[in-house]
């Protein structure tokens, strides 16, 4: 480790048993953006008064001339990012997911996607693990909003290491991208030798009974659910579908052909996100039962992030139960 680009800044701090301590994906973003800023002059960053929370403040401090705080004005931030991209810059525009995708959706549609500008929308504070701030700040619809736009690539990394690799891949990629990150610390789940590629799913294992398709912080839970099911004699595989668009159809089809059922798991509304994307593809190409674990058609609420995950059934236990019931 250490030589591979994108891994040098990962927090290697380990606990007593040698396991890497959890780290928020937003922290990995801030670290990687800073590194990219050192390596590339064309990287610029914009924020809408949340740079301390989105972690773009690290870039801002190091490269004040290439950082543009637009104030509390997400629509203007997106338009300004498009303009910067049109002069050859690679703008990373960040704020909370609910404001980035909701407040500025028409700006993303017209000046980013329709104009096909090289804008990188990296949003933090997605999902219910925003916690105590409550529903107004918990984006549960952002993947649906972004996935519906032509030309848009949508990525939901599972841990800090994958986030670093994804941000590097996104910087090299030409075209609009939405990256969905979180506020809470999440455990490392991807293997050390993992290589991130946009549009390529990571197959942890392929199950003969069931396969779980997950992304974001639900990947770790999916892995634990599969371990629980294994003890009961249920052969359940796990796929990290970190790129929601374009979907890795090859990996998905292989999982579908191998097993009797599929279960999706995401920290997002079951409407329009990963679960929907999987159902859309499976219903046309390999019809079979698909169950979706996610937030039901409802808003979130205030609370401790871990308690909120339990409250909404976003747990390894509930994924396992969903698999059992479907079989």
């Amino acid at each position: 480790m250490g030589e591979r680009p994108g891994t040098e800044q990962i927090d290697e701090t380990t606990d007593a048993s040698g396991v890497k301590k959890p780290k928020a994906t937003r922290d990995a973003y801030g670290d990687t953006l800073l590194e990219l800023g050192k390596e590339r002059e064309d990287i610029v960053t914009l924020d809408a008064d949340l740079s301390g929370s989105t972690k773009t403040a690290k870039f801002a401090k190091a490269f004040p001339d290439r950082f543009f705080n637009i104030g509390i004005a997400e629509q203007d931030m997106v338009g300004t990012a498009a303009g910067l991209a049109l002069t050859g810059k690679v703008p990373f525009a960040s704020t909370f997911a609910v404001f980035e995708t909701g407040r500025a959706w028409d700006q993303i549609r017209l000046t980013v996607c329709y104009s096909n500008t090289n804008v990188k929308l990296v949003a933090t504070h997605s999902g219910i693990t925003v916690g105590e701030d409550g529903a107004s700040h918990q984006a549960l619809e952002d993947v649906a909003l972004m996935r519906a736009l032509p030309n848009m690539t949508v990525i939901v990394p599972s841990d800090a290491a994958e986030t670093s690799l994804a941000i590097r891949a996104v910087a090299d990629f030409l075209g609009p991208v939405y990256v969905r990150l979180g506020r809470a610390k999440v455990p490392y789940v991807m293997p050390d030798n993992y290589e991130f590629k946009i549009g390529k799913a990571h197959v942890f294992s392929t199950g003969k009974d069931a396969n779980i398709i997950a992304n974001g912080l639900m990947v770790d839970m999916a892995v634990r659910a599969a371990e629980m099911l294994k003890l009961e004699g249920i052969d359940c595989g796990v796929i990290n579908m970190s790129t929601v668009k374009p979907l890795d159809e090859v990996a998905l089809l292989a999982a579908a052909k191998a097993s009797k059922i599929l279960v999706t798991a995401e920290e997002h509304s079951i409407i329009g996100g990963l679960g929907s994307a999987v159902c859309e593809f499976i219903s046309e190409h390999s019809p079979m039962p698909v169950k979706r674990v996610g937030v039901l058609d409802t808003f979130g609420c205030s609370g401790d992030p871990d308690e909120l995950l339990k409250f909404h059934g976003l747990t390894a236990e509930n994924i396992a139960t969903t698999v059992r019931n479907a079989l």
Binding site: Q75, A82, L86, T111
Partner: peptide, 30 residues
């Protein structure tokens, strides 16, 4: 802009051009 070279950015949904103009000017300044 994707169909006609010389159009700098697509417009039509009102109120968005000035933001893009700012971004271009800031990029050119850099």
């Amino acid at each position: 802009c994707q169909k006609l070279p010389g159009i700098e950015v697509s417009t039509g949904s009102l109120g968005q051009g000035l933001s893009v103009a700012n971004g271009m000017a800031l990029g050119l300044r850099l």
